[in-house]
Design a protein around this nucleic acid. Structure first.
Lengths: 186, 186
DNA sequence: ACTGAAAACTTTGATGTTGAAATGTTGCCC
DNA sequence: GGGCAACATTTCAACATCAAAGTTTTCAGT
């Protein structure tokens, strides 16, 4: 019954039969081409696909972690600590920046990781404004045991692309990110 | 003071000096290479950049709309109605699917759009379970006046890429999306 | 030393999202 | 035609996030 109103189906092939299969964004673009032929909406083709791919990948990652009693953000914080330095230790600010969340959100997340015994929280004696977050042995074990399978899962999610595709994709996205100012300030 | 603990800077060039500037993901990958040289984390290079690019683009889009007293989700819903059919009308389910939010969230959003006079809500006589959402004249005017400048803003955000880059990027992402099952069911 | 500004984190309050339960409709099948 | 399952939407309760305000600590200038 849903298509009674949507009538999205007939618009599908009006732009010609491509060899590469059309995705949802192609359908949106063809709707725009019909509704507003005077506007070139091609930027949406890139921005829309990045957004959509990000959500689908996130979903696939979340499903994987849920099978291991872990939330993606939990692994994210633990893994950031793990790779940052041999002590597996960072202050709240750096951790918040690396996880791309506000300091308020990180306080909440660290609270729960402490409650689960995966990280340790302590004030830094040399500067008591700072709070150091350290991976516990258990936290390190979680990263150790899940890193490889997590990467394997991402590998699976990307399996529709060849090795060369992925290199090209990574290079193009690096170029985009750099132009958007995504650089760590030294 | 932040770098006292992070020590991310020295790791930056350990993998060699590339011609293309390194982004944040390159630094994360080099941290992994140091912490766990036995694991090939290259899938993170793609997945991480997609996630990061998505967030940065969202931010740029949000900033643009905030200058026009509009939230990105508002334009998203209005534009979806606009392009869907000449009547600018969709039922809740289809609208929720197109906006990629739960039906509960869409109820909330439509409430606010009705309050702003941008859409009209009515039950469909032929099937009183369904609720039809229609763009008002004012809602249509908003899309009409903002579509071009919104696309221009996306164009600006992508200006670091050449036209050929964008085509390649769109094609690769289309391939990825298709393999992830992003197809509208006819 | 004392004062004020700035830094690092936490708390608070408003807002928005989700999944699950509730409400109201429809169509089927005996 | 009565009962029942499926459907579309809304309501509800839990929870996550952010911005802004609050707390504690440090540092710089005098």
């Amino acid at each position: 019954m849903k298509d009674t109103l949507a009538d999205s189906t007939p618009a599908n092939n009006t732009t010609g039969d491509d060899i590469t299969a059309a995705d949802t964004v192609d359908q949106i673009l063809s709707q725009w081409a019909r509704a507003r032929p005077d506007v070139d909406c091609s930027p949406m083709g890139v921005a829309g696909r990045i957004s959509r791919a990000s959500r689908l990948l996130e979903k696939g990652i979340k499903e994987y972690f849920s099978g291991h009693d872990l939330e993606p953000w939990e692994f994210d914080v633990l893994a950031t600590l793990f790779r940052s330095n041999p002590e597996h230790r960072l202050c709240m600010s750096d951790l918040a920046a690396a996880a791309m969340v506000s300091s308020a959100a990180l306080t909440n997340r660290v609270d729960r990781l402490v409650a689960r015994g995966l990280v340790h929280r302590e004030t830094w004696p040399a500067n008591r404004r700072m709070v150091l977050i350290t991976l516990t042995d258990e936290g390190r074990a979680v990263v150790d045991s899940l890193l490889e399978s997590h990467v394997a899962n991402e590998e699976r999610l990307l399996s529709g692309l060849t090795a060369e595709d992925r290199e090209q994709l990574a290079a193009l996205l690096r170029k985009l990110l750099t132009s958007l100012g995504d650089v760590r300030l030294g």
